[in-house]
Amino acid sequence: MSDLRRVSSNPHVRSRTTTSNIMMWVVIALLPAAGFGIYNFGLDALIILLLSVASCVLSEFIYEKALGKPVTVGDFSAVVTGLLLGMNLPSTVPWWIPVLGGIFAIIMVKQLFGGLGQNFMNPALGGRCFLMISFPAIMTNFVTDTYTGATPLANLKNGVEVNVMDMLIGRTAGTIGETSMLCIAIGAIILFALGIIDYVIPFTYIISFALFVAFFGGYGFNWSYISAQLAGGGLMLGAFFMATDYVTCPITPKGRVIYGLFLGILTGIFRIFGANAEGVSYAIVITNLLVPLIEKFTIPRAFGIKKSAKKEAKKA
């Protein structure tokens, strides 16, 4: 019989894009911000990044080997988690902080829930939040030989004027990968150009946050204040590299918009009304938990099915 009659299971059209390809490009897109962090904070930053990546990769390898599971470190997802976690840490933390954070991110947040594709929140941010709650003094120490003052966001919260141009370039205190908005933007452009991320979530996030700050920040539509809030802290890194995580963001079109709105509002609440100057990590983690609920109410109706018929089917 001719092979032309043989029918295989769907999908019949496959893309050459793989998880490892996507993750590799994400790593490449993160390199400008990571590289500037090393330039900005020195050898300590490089050591933190290497320890973070190594702990994530080894944790995944050892866990999967111990349980007899297929080893998946070749998909680069653990590398992305380690790099993001390291970029969200101050260069002043002791060596065991990125190691502990990497183990928690991979084992507790990712592997115990089934591995890549099953985690309920972004592993890197889960690890960072764990470290923030457990070691707040260590995680908020940004004093280095180069920068001895408070971070720009802390100054903003205290009513102190900040230099927005320094924040755009990255000549400020902060975590290793969040200081240079320019380098983060370069990485985001790479992801946009390759179609790895789209504009809906990050732009909805940024715009809703800007509007929230304008209405509730106490300065109105003061562009200097709004731009400083946008350029400061982990907002840009979170918006382009963590809020867009395929596993933990909605797949429905309306859901992605609602997701971005929640992110912007929560980040604004934490920054304006919270005790700390930052709030991106907690905003993304909390909104990750809301994704199943968001998707439940934003699933598109199947073509040809009326609302009434759908309700009757549910009742039956």
Results as ranks from 00 to 15, higher is better:
5 R>P: 04
8 S>E: 12
19 T>F: 09
21 N>W: 15
23 M>W: 14
24 M>T: 08
27 V>P: 04
28 I>G: 06
31 L>W: 13
33 A>R: 05
36 F>L: 10
38 I>T: 11
43 L>H: 13
43 L>F: 15
44 D>I: 07
47 I>F: 09
50 L>N: 07
53 V>M: 14
53 V>S: 05
54 A>W: 10
55 S>V: 05
58 L>Q: 02
58 L>D: 07
62 I>R: 11
63 Y>K: 03
64 E>A: 14
64 E>S: 12
67 L>G: 07
67 L>W: 15
68 G>Q: 13
68 G>I: 15
71 V>N: 13
71 V>R: 13
76 F>L: 05
79 V>G: 00
82 G>R: 08
83 L>Q: 07
86 G>Y: 04
90 P>W: 14
90 P>A: 13
95 W>G: 03
96 W>T: 02
101 G>W: 06
104 F>W: 02
105 A>F: 02
106 I>G: 00
106 I>C: 04
107 I>S: 02
119 N>V: 05
120 F>I: 06
122 N>Q: 05
125 L>Q: 05
126 G>F: 08
127 G>E: 13
129 C>A: 11
130 F>G: 05
134 S>T: 14
140 T>Q: 01
140 T>C: 09
142 F>S: 02
142 F>G: 00
143 V>Q: 10
144 T>Y: 10
146 T>H: 07
148 T>H: 08
150 A>D: 15
151 T>S: 08
152 P>K: 14
152 P>F: 11
153 L>Q: 09
156 L>E: 06
157 K>Y: 06
157 K>S: 10
157 K>E: 03
166 D>K: 14
167 M>P: 05
167 M>F: 14
168 L>R: 00
169 I>C: 04
176 I>N: 01
179 T>Y: 09
184 I>C: 05
187 G>R: 10
188 A>C: 11
188 A>Y: 10
189 I>W: 15
190 I>R: 12
195 G>I: 15
196 I>G: 10
196 I>C: 08
197 I>L: 03
198 D>N: 12
200 V>M: 00
203 F>L: 01
204 T>I: 00
205 Y>D: 00
215 F>K: 02
215 F>H: 03
218 G>W: 14
221 F>S: 08
227 S>Y: 07
228 A>E: 08
228 A>W: 07
230 L>V: 07
231 A>Q: 11
231 A>H: 11
238 G>E: 02
239 A>R: 00
241 F>M: 04
245 D>R: 02
245 D>N: 03
246 Y>T: 01
248 T>P: 00
250 P>E: 08
251 I>A: 06
252 T>K: 02
256 R>C: 01
259 Y>G: 01
260 G>A: 00
261 L>V: 10
262 F>M: 07
262 F>Q: 02
263 L>R: 04
265 I>T: 07
268 G>F: 14
270 F>D: 06
270 F>N: 01
271 R>L: 10
272 I>S: 09
275 A>N: 04
275 A>V: 12
276 N>E: 09
277 A>K: 12
278 E>T: 10
281 S>P: 00
286 I>D: 05
286 I>N: 02
290 L>I: 12
290 L>N: 03
291 V>K: 11
291 V>R: 05
292 P>D: 15
295 E>R: 00
295 E>I: 03
296 K>F: 08
299 I>R: 01
301 R>K: 06
302 A>S: 03
306 K>F: 14
